[in-house]
Amino acid sequence: MLAGVASGDEAAFAELYQATSAKLLGVALRILRNREVAEEVVQEAYFKVWERAGDYKPEIAAPVTWMAAIVRNRALDEVRRRVIRPTADENELDNLESGDEHPIAALERAEDVERLMRCLDGLEPEKKQMVKLAYLDGMSREALAKRFDRPEGTIKTWLHRSLAQLRGCLEQ
């Protein structure tokens, strides 16, 4: 599909949008908590995808992973750059714990998702929560330090250890 987009195929682009936009908006909203800003970020991401689809390397990442990285980078820059007022609906996302999902959904998950979840479960509960708050909700070291009531230096050490442990587990 991305190959089609790279050659300027509009039908392929529409199809790609259909298949990925709701997930990408979900990703942006979790970080930004503001619908208008999140849609702007998603819009810019698709524009970038259209322009740069030729850079996409299938051997390095799945398409949605590549696109999600573009969306996350833009969303993280935006949320670090300025104070964004959360819109009402998006505040409720706080109550949305992503860990509990329907068992059937869990069964259908791809192998790489399964492996990552298993490795995350191998972290101490607090560290696992920290990794998820950072990756999914866009919490900075500073925000995590407040949330867990620890100095930033400690948070950094914990994060690096957790990430090293994850890498070790994923490479097994």
């Binding site: 936009s21 709701a22 997930k23 908006l25 979900g26 990703v27 909203l29 979790r30 849609e39 998603v42 390095i60 990442a61 799945a62 949605v64 992973t65 590549w66 999600a68 990285a69 949305l96 992503s98 860990g99 999902e101 998950r109 791809a110 790489d112 998702v113 492996r115 990552l116 979840m117 995350l120 998820k132 990756y135 999914l136 994850l166 890498r167 994923l170």
Partner: peptide, 19 residues
């Protein structure tokens, strides 16, 4: 790129939102 590949599957747990 390697870390994007490692952590990327986590977005599987994000609830999709229709634009």
């Amino acid at each position: 790129a390697a870390w994007e590949r490692r952590l990327g599957p986590m977005i599987e747990t994000v609830t999709p939102v229709a634009p």
